[in-house]
Design a protein around this nucleic acid. Structure first.
Lengths: 186, 186
DNA sequence: TGTAGCATGTAAGCCGTTACATGATTGA
DNA sequence: TCAATCATGTAACGGCTTACATGCTACA
């Protein structure tokens, strides 16, 4: 069977979540992704999780177990031996892209010459609030990860994120100062 | 003419570049994007720039001027009055998404329980080198922006980026320490 | 009794990519 | 004269999204 396309990065990320938690439903996987992957990769849409899981299953990297509970069919996925191997292979292998940032706030600051300083100033203020909210969210998650050695690496990534959000708040404060009306540009 | 889809964010970004620099070729726009947008939005593929420009042109937001120079046709684009208006409208309007980060290094650290600490440690070291290179690149760009009030906002974004790369280097150092063999996890 | 959460999917389409194709100009 | 850079596109396709469709279960 030639032309089996390798999984996408998101596919591997899902394999990784399964390796962390064991058997899960697509729905559960989505919720877990929202608590983890979302902060440094993507928050995949529900439908995307399902289609990705279908592909992984066809490739033999996850196994499905279909159960009936009441009137509801429940499909649980877990990492197959082949999936575990393939995940390890991918993790050990070469090319890792430099991170990509899609930062609309920065884009709008960049275009400040069109709007004048008021608009970026306002957006920066809002962004700061969002950063605070995100910080708290992520800190709650990090606390929930504490003291379980299995989640040690997850906790490190969470701390990295918290640190980033903090620094970002300071950067925003600094820029807002520069945009201050007193010392302000046109 | 109903059903004219509004430009994408990247479309607006290109309008913004035109507003900053005036008349440019698709090729020139791509090069400019690589020195600016790349750091906080995307580095659009050459072909993407052209197709986006075609759409903007059809929507009347940019005007084309086709000239012949030797055996080569040169198509230059500039912001139309409608484009300028639409750009201002968009910049002034609501919803700005929270930044999205696609961070493969973080993903691989997150999955450290699969590989053990050596692999993330190695990737982190490489990442640090890339961060240094990027820092220098961006610092050169920022210097090229100095002392021109038109580029004031662009310079602020460049400084923001430099600051981010610096903080990221420190974070990486911190994490690498935690992964140190002496105090190391399994 | 109603609603929030659990649960599983299909269809259509957009944004952006890589691969392919072509050729002129500048300067070492 | 050769390579790098300038310059303009088309075709195919991939990853991910939104909108749509359906229905069970727990609990207030």
């Amino acid at each position: 069977m030639p032309g089996q396309a390798p999984p996408t990065v998101t596919g591997y990320a899902l394999l990784g979540l399964l390796s962390l938690r064991g058997e899960m439903s697509g729905y559960g996987l989505k919720k877990l992704a929202d608590r983890t992957l979302r902060f440094f990769w993507v928050a995949p849409a529900m439908s995307h999780v399902y289609s990705e899981l279908t592909r992984l299953s066809r490739a033999g990297l996850v196994t499905e177990s279909l159960t009936q509970r009441g009137g509801r069919r429940l499909r649980r996925y877990s990492l197959s031996a082949a999936g575990d191997l393939e995940l390890r292979r991918w993790l050990g292998e070469g090319e890792v892209d430099f991170p990509i940032l899609k930062h609309e706030v920065a884009l709008r600051l960049f275009l400040g010459h069109v709007t004048g300083p008021d608009r970026p100033r306002h957006l920066l203020a809002r962004y700061r609030g969002q950063l605070r909210a995100r910080s708290e969210e992520l800190e709650a998650i990090r606390r929930s990860l504490e003291d379980d050695p299995r989640f040690r690496y997850a906790a490190m990534v969470a701390e990295w994120g918290i640190r980033y959000y903090l620094e970002e708040q300071q950067a925003v404060a600094h820029i807002s100062n520069q945009l201050d009306p007193d010392r302000g540009p046109t």
